[in-house]
Computed example of a mutant assay.
Amino acid sequence: MATAQLTGSTFGAAVSDLRRGWEQRSLWGHLGWQDIRQRYRRSFLGPIWISLTMAVTAIALGTLYAGLFDNDLATQLPHVLVGFIVWGFISGCINEGAEVFTSNVGLITHLPAPLSVHIYRLVWRQTLFFAHNLVVYVVMLFIFHQDLKWTGLAVIPAFLLLALNGAWAALLLGIVATRFRDFVPIAQSVVQLAFFLTPIVWIYDELARSPNPAIAERAKLAEFNPFLHFLEIVRAPLLGQDQQLRHWIVVLAITVVGWALTMVVLRRYRARVSYWV
């Protein structure tokens, strides 16, 4: 028993969990599809409600903030709409990640599968939501023409980085929240606060160039918000805007640090999650 516990507390065991979970793609891929079908099983419009709700909210806030900041609606609305699509993925990974193990207690206690299966399932489900919401983005392109460039293909590695960070965030938060149940509402409150501090409905570059020095200096504080950088590496290519190297550097640094910390936590507490749930 002691040997088994020691073996289960090594980095090799943690890496093996991630590897074996990835190999069970047919399992978590099927479960991810079933999650969406189950959620909208008796709905006439089904998953279309996801995009409709997001689109209506984005249009309302985009119109409101365009008036408040005296911005052109053709600039403000696409900015808000794409921001909502990306933020939906980020917030979904964090909010659902905090409950990823406690909400799957039945599978964890009865299904002999790696913990990472539940993380891959969550990220896959959020990816499906993201892809579904891109339909609204395509409609927006017909209404508000964007000067897209070939550099827009950068959205592919950008989203892969986003998903990679969503995986470590869900895994880390899931383990912590399983041990400390009060952490779930804390994480949800932080995400709600971050929504207002992140340039989703307001345009960071315009405020940073404001002729009012006080407003410009306060706007630049957003650089310390990590969500800004994740948002921009995906939103910029979708809107045909130039890429900023600093956003990629920050995201890559967070990816390395985040996964390093997560692997330490996974190595130490992976075997205890089934008891905590």
Rank of each mutant, 00 (worst) to 15 (best):
P226M: 09
T53W: 11
G92E: 13
N225A: 09
A98M: 04
N71F: 13
W33Y: 10
R267H: 09
Q34E: 03
D242W: 14
E217R: 15
E232G: 02
R179E: 12
Q34A: 13
G67M: 11
V273G: 06
L64N: 07
L207K: 10
P213K: 07
Q243K: 04
N104Q: 13
T178Q: 08
G62N: 01
R125Q: 06
V138D: 05
A60C: 10
L111N: 07
W248K: 02
A74I: 08
S91N: 02
A158H: 01
D35W: 02
L252P: 08
Q126E: 15
A14G: 03
V82E: 00
Q241K: 11
L6N: 14
G152L: 04
H110D: 12
L81H: 04
D17C: 05
A169I: 13
G97D: 04
P47H: 04
T75K: 05
F224K: 07
L122P: 01
V256N: 05
R270M: 06
V234N: 04
V251N: 03
V273Y: 06
R268K: 14
W28I: 00
L27C: 15
F84I: 07
V100G: 00
P199E: 05
A66Y: 01
R179Y: 10
I233P: 00
L73N: 04
V257G: 09
Y40D: 02
H132L: 08
I108L: 13
K220N: 14
A169H: 05
A154Q: 08
I48M: 00
E23H: 10
F89T: 04
Q24S: 15
V136P: 01
V201C: 09
L164D: 12
Y204D: 10
A167Y: 06
A60D: 11
V105H: 14
L153T: 06
L141G: 05
W168G: 05
H229R: 09
F183I: 12
V15W: 15
A158Y: 04
F196Y: 15
G29D: 04
A214C: 13
F130K: 00
V184Y: 03
L115C: 03
A222F: 08
T3V: 15
V234D: 00
H145L: 13
T127E: 04
F230R: 08
I48A: 00
P199V: 11
R121I: 00
I200Q: 01
E206N: 12
H247V: 07
Y137E: 06
G106W: 10
Y137A: 11
V80E: 05
F183Q: 01
S26H: 14
A260R: 14
T198A: 03
L27I: 11
L231F: 07
A219Y: 00
L141K: 05
F11A: 14
L81P: 02
L162S: 02
A66W: 03
F142Q: 13
F227L: 14
R42I: 01
F101R: 05
L77C: 09
Q126H: 10
N95Q: 13
I215P: 08
F69E: 10
V251F: 05
S9K: 11
G106S: 12
W259L: 02
V15A: 14
D70T: 14
V86L: 08
A74Y: 08
F130Q: 03
S274P: 09
G92N: 10
E96M: 12
L172N: 08
F183A: 10
T75Y: 15
